[in-house]
Design a protein around this nucleic acid. Structure first.
Lengths: 241, 241
DNA sequence: CGACTGGTTGATCTCCATCAATCCCTGTGG
DNA sequence: CCACAGGGATTGATGGAGATCAACCAGTCG
């Protein structure tokens, strides 16, 4: 078990919102300490999910939103004929389950790509709390708005027709999101398989692999298994469109 | 239930929410009459947009949400190099502008595809009102959730690799949305050009045209200009995946 | 150690983008 | 009313990007 990163001083006590590393990306952004503790009270924390564990499945009753503390979750739906379609990758600080509010049923599957811990936010209680905390209400709207925007960016990413563009944009997108979390800028680890990437981007998995090696040959990136280092950020940016 | 024949008289005075034909798809779903009139008070109604008029442009300040009363709006963004990417088509009863809540700036352009009338819902006032109307607050969440779900379906639509699948899913998607509005089931009019469709689906416009004629030759649909009739719904459904 | 999953590389074929010509609606003005 | 212009849509011919099939390699785990 590659215990590579030595900077993870694991916190074994249950993390309160107040002490959460990704708080600023999550729901309780810019609330007072008192208000945060109100949110904190309704949060349900569970045992970490192991790789391959499902957070929820298509058709499950909607119990609440989930905020990723650390780890990564993949969401995917099934087409009528049973083909899998990956709809998103959710990293630390991102909220998922927003797509279930309307119908009160989860429309997709959510599975952990690695060891992952999430906070469950029971939605009915959350809504009650928004009645007394306008700031929270606004934050909820913002989180949902951000999710809508995120999906639009995915559309933009898929729009550019060539495989290279898609791959490059995907790398850049992921890099940006990783950078918001860890300090390290141009080197990170993929939490998803080539399979998942290819499915997400609408490409064959071989194409994904080839594009990676292509970029590697051009000395723009360096890839070892799932670890990527961006050697020439500007060059990569230029390829994006 | 469905609107009865006696309700069909056109209302030429500015339409109040209460009398709006697409109310059930919009924000004031399942509110009491009294509550609806509160929402109604904050709605700003304007002159109709003509085809080609912009509702807002990228970078415009976020003033509020917009609900389409009738007509159709196309939203699109620009990539870094200036390529247009269509991100959505918004029909009567659909709310747009949700993507601007977080940053308080519109991230895309919204242009009318035909004569279109919208209600403007100033967001700050709307948020104030949600504090006293929990039902409205919930509806807002639901509308946003629905939008997230809608975009996921687009991803699913684009996922299937072949051009035929994309076209077919697009037709079915549009048909479903039209059916929610008008009674007529399998015959409707496209509000967008082939250009727009191709851009949206990530295909060449010639491919779109060819696929349409293909389906026409197979007697599955009938297309005259922008008017389409689905002759064999089951066959079409089967092609979707 | 073999079995297995995930990833890379190679060869071939097909679908679709691209370029180009033509057609057809729509509206405008003589 | 017709002619004409111009954008939108169709159709045809061609080349190439990427899907597919298949073999091979590298970690990982029981």
């Amino acid at each position: 078990m590659a215990t590579t990163g030595s900077n993870l001083k694991l916190i074994h006590v249950k993390t309160a919102c107040e002490a959460c590393r990704v708080r600023e990306l999550c729901l309780p952004t810019s609330l007072t300490e008192a208000d945060i503790s109100l949110v904190d009270e309704l949060v349900v924390r569970r045992e970490p999910l192991e790789k391959g564990d499902y957070l929820y499945r298509t058709g499950d009753d909607f119990r609440g939103l989930y905020a990723v503390q650390y780890g990564a979750i993949k969401t995917y739906g099934l087409t009528l004929q049973g083909r899998e379609q990956v709809t998103g990758f959710h990293l630390a600080g991102e909220v998922l389950g927003l797509d279930a509010i309307d119908q009160e049923v989860h429309p997709c599957n959510a599975i952990a790509l690695e060891k992952t811990e999430v906070c469950q936010l029971p939605f009915d209680k959350l809504e009650q709390l928004t009645q007394s905390l306008p700031g929270l209400s606004h934050n909820l709207s913002r989180v949902m708005s951000r999710e809508i925007l995120r999906e639009q960016h995915v559309l933009m990413m898929l729009g550019g027709t060539t495989a290279e563009q898609r791959i490059v944009r995907f790398i850049l997108n992921l890099q940006k999101r990783m950078a918001q979390r860890e300090i390290m800028g141009h080197s990170f680890r993929f939490c998803m398989s080539r399979q998942d990437i290819s499915n997400y981007l609408g490409l064959a998995l071989e194409t994904v692999s080839r594009q990676f090696t292509h970029l590697q040959e051009k000395q723009i990136i360096d890839i070892q298994n799932r670890h990527i280092t961006i050697l020439q950020p500007e060059a990569l940016q230029k390829l994006a469109d």
